[in-house]
Design a protein around this nucleic acid. Structure first.
Lengths: 180, 180
DNA sequence: GGCTACATGTAAGCGGTTACATGATTTA
DNA sequence: TAAATCATGTAACCGCTTACATGTAGCC
């Protein structure tokens, strides 16, 4: 797939930044749908530079510290645009360790099984509340500006996902509570 | 994590089988929440055997073909049971290439953006219908037997996930259709 | 006789994480 | 002046996929 390169190109298309800035973007803005550690980002930037998809300028921070500010090249923009259009996805079902546990949970006592579900429910409930908190950063809902609208829609997708999990886990709890 | 070993132990705890049978289980029964290729299964079975978590007996199929029928050992059952109880999950948000595309889709024309969403919608709609079809295999809903009930709940989770995606994509279509 | 399914393995490579490694700048 | 953050890299390893490799059994 090589999706990381497009995530980086997409971010650099919004604004020029350093590898460290990119790292922070993955930790915050993109964390809902993609992630990458700096140990993956720096080598990728090297490759993208060689392929002439990005370029960098060295900036001096303070007295001596050199930082590389990366920008997307016209060739990079073209590739990014092309990737956005050619959507040959077949949609891979994400692995779900909790469902695996649930599937084999006939080995457990009813009490243990319910505890497992409750713990998972708490995780998703907390996540949902956290995401709903993020709605506050939008001045109007839905946002009028396109850039903010896509941000909003992605956040909405996360909230819906967590809500769905919570509802499903409630149903699991109810049906499995009746057993024995 | 080393989750694969528990998936295999869980399956062997239900019934003894060959590596090939396991492969088919991953392709069918577990496909909604876990997957593994035979190139991963066979080496894992080797390791599990060395660790005395499973054992095998050679069976002759036809004239000469030897197949290894694996069974879980008491030590394996104990480890599986322990894994089910110690649920130290922190819940990792699954990567979502479509959301990444959507997030950067301000580069596209409205028409192109809507086409992207529609294609994704079709994928999830088809998946949902396919999963709903699978409900037919249950004699009663909800199933009475515990074993079938966990199967049912996992399936239900998949259907709910696809339904959620469809609803979200409809909202995306509506809000982005208004732009410009 | 030919095709599909059964059956079992290994090797190369990719995407990703964890750990190793270093040093400057800012802030409390 | 100590701690947190900024800043950039490499190395080892893990989980997984794709491809390589081989052969049998059952069915039409």
């Amino acid at each position: 797939m090589g999706t990381l390169r497009y995530a980086i190109l997409g971010l650099l298309n919004r604004r020029s930044m350093t590898g460290y800035d990119l790292k922070k973007e993955f930790e915050t803005t993109l964390s809902e749908f993609w992630s990458a550690k700096h140990s993956q980002i720096y080598p990728e930037l090297k490759e993208l530079t060689i392929a002439n998809l990005v370029s960098f300028e060295v900036e001096i921070s303070g007295e001596v510290l050199e930082k590389k500010v990366y920008s997307i090249t016209p060739k990079g923009v073209a590739l990014l645009h092309n990737w956005l259009l050619t959507n040959e996805e077949t949609y891979l079902i994400p692995k779900d360790e909790f469902k695996l546990r649930l599937f084999f949970s006939d080995l457990l006592a009813t009490k243990e099984r319910l505890a497992l579900i409750k713990a998972q429910y708490q995780l998703h409930l907390a996540k949902m509340k956290h995401l709903e908190d993020n709605l506050k950063k939008f001045a109007s809902i839905p946002p009028q500006e396109l850039n903010h609208l896509t941000d909003y829609l992605v956040l909405l997708g996360g909230i819906k996902r967590e809500k769905m999990f919570c509802e499903w886990l409630e149903e699991c709890q109810e049906l499995l509570g009746k057993v024995e």
